[in-house]
Design a protein around this nucleic acid. Sequence first.
RNA 1: CGGGGCGUGGCGCAGUCCGGUUAGCGCGCGCGGUUUGGGACCGCGAGGUCGAAGGUUCGAAUCCUUUCGCCCCGACCA
Length: 571
Amino acid sequence: MRISTLFGKPSKNEGVDYKIDSHRLLTQAGFIRESTAGRYYLLPLGIKVHDKIEAIVRKHMNAAGAQEVVMPVLHPLELWQETNRTTTTGFELMKITDRRGADFALGGTAEEMAVDLVRKFNISYKDLPFNIYQFSMKFRDEMRARGGLLRVREFVMKDAYSFSTEEQFKKIYEAMWKAYVAIFEELGMKVDVVAADNGYIGGEYCHEFVSEGENGESRYFIDEKSGYAAHEDVATFKIDDKNLDDREEKMEERKAERGPTMEDGVKLHGLPLWQQMKDVLYFDEATKRYVLAVIRGDLDVNETKLMQKAGAWDLRSATEEEIRDDLASEPGFICPVNFTKKGKETGFPVIIVADKSLRTVKNMYGGANQKHLDLTNINIDRDWQPDLEADIAMAAPGMLSPDGGKLVEKRGIEVGNIFQLGYHYTNLMHDAEYTDEKGTRQKYYMGCYGIGIGRTLAAIVEAHHDDRGIIWPKAVAPASVYLARLGVSKETTEVADKLYETLLERHIDVLYDDRDARPGEKFADADLIGVPYRVVVSDKLVTSKKFELKARGSDTLELLTQSELLAKLAS
RNA sequence: CGGGGCGUGGCGCAGUCCGGUUAGCGCGCGCGGUUUGGGACCGCGAGGUCGAAGGUUCGAAUCCUUUCGCCCCGACCA
């Protein structure tokens, strides 16, 4: 490919103020161009990398026994209604109506479509297991797109859906896990595999593949000794017992002229933070219930865990008015002791969820549901009873992992994930069944597996760049050689043109900078675009019949004859 | 959706508060010339219904109303 005729040439004054490196570099180097927020044009250089990533993903999916299909982008809305996901999805569905009034969702993920496809066939246990996948444009009406390709509203995703018996499932899940490890390794990426929350996808467990980096949106914890790795939403930790040997003292009311914060309580009572009760009140818009989360004072409530344990979908903080007027309590002085069981005005029920950390401490203190009144020596069971006890605590750096090592906090970009879906969809959708050995109908046990191609592309750039530009791993580089012709003499031009032809004949992918530009500009663009090798043909070098070779990311220059050069580039 | 900022040639901006000739500047682009190993220089030139609609006014990029879009921070995810 000749730079002189390339559509989408590098431009240094494009996107200069973009905050995210991959966003800026991909824009300046001419890989992408923004259309509107969260929607991008992929330019000729960009699609080359995108295609290479797809090819690698495809190779490993096929090797793992998955079979490629293509599904429609418009999904009949009935399918989403069948699984209730018109209301429960985390991303807003994009909807479309055709001229006959039929409603469709623009596909954001395709579990329902996969099930619908499979149930169009008469499948026997002999056909199991199987795993079908596709590359297709996904649409998500994200509230806020950000970071260039890192979070967009339209993107190509590889999504796979496995159908099997429950017994067969584990093997498939592991095969996908292994395939993902191989994919990201071949892509030149270091990823952590992190246990995570299933969210709106459903099912019981899942793992995210996270490319570590400052700009990542995923926060997770790792125990570097044992390898335990979990997203902050699900990370668990060992809780230390505090004062369990103490005798339970008599609960007492105490005047408390204090502010509403935890620190105010510590100061007033002169007792440790961990002995204080933290009470956080939520309202779930989906089920119209209040949820009172109670936890040890030195810990924070993990809202993802809370939602899962309490069966809530759409949790928000309760307002001060709700606390005062509907629940007859007081912000900063909420307490589960004698807490009202339903809203005075609204009649909405209250569910009290206790974190298991409350079992590690006795004689706690906290508010008394009245301004400037506290309780001391509160003990669970004796003084109050939760409706539900569960782990609803947020892990923090330095805590001990379930395996005993220290938890380290990391950030990263979620580039792929694998989900156990179980019977979630096959229970919700009719006829999602095969015939077993005895001739009876059985539900499929499912899994799904996604990789965002564009995000992966951006994550590679995040991980591989310097202040001059991108440094592509060989496997995905838009070309392997940047051939820069310096000088305009007839001889130099002829030698450079000839080398370009020779490289093409040998199927060495080359970007030929044949522009009539100054050396500085060519070197700068070579560094910006970031292909693995730069070859220079110049007026100085033609007389000696040598070519200069330099690897991107290194400062070493080599002078080589043409045969030496070709041998090196072919390897 | 909440909070903050911004829409002026392809890109980055000035001008807007306080209305008044032909709307400027830098980069880029085109032509001519001098240059050619880390983003050169000189000359000439093209390119703008000032996001959109409505209003106020003798007169609007500038004031008012409405609206659309974009960026940054939060709640979501491949």
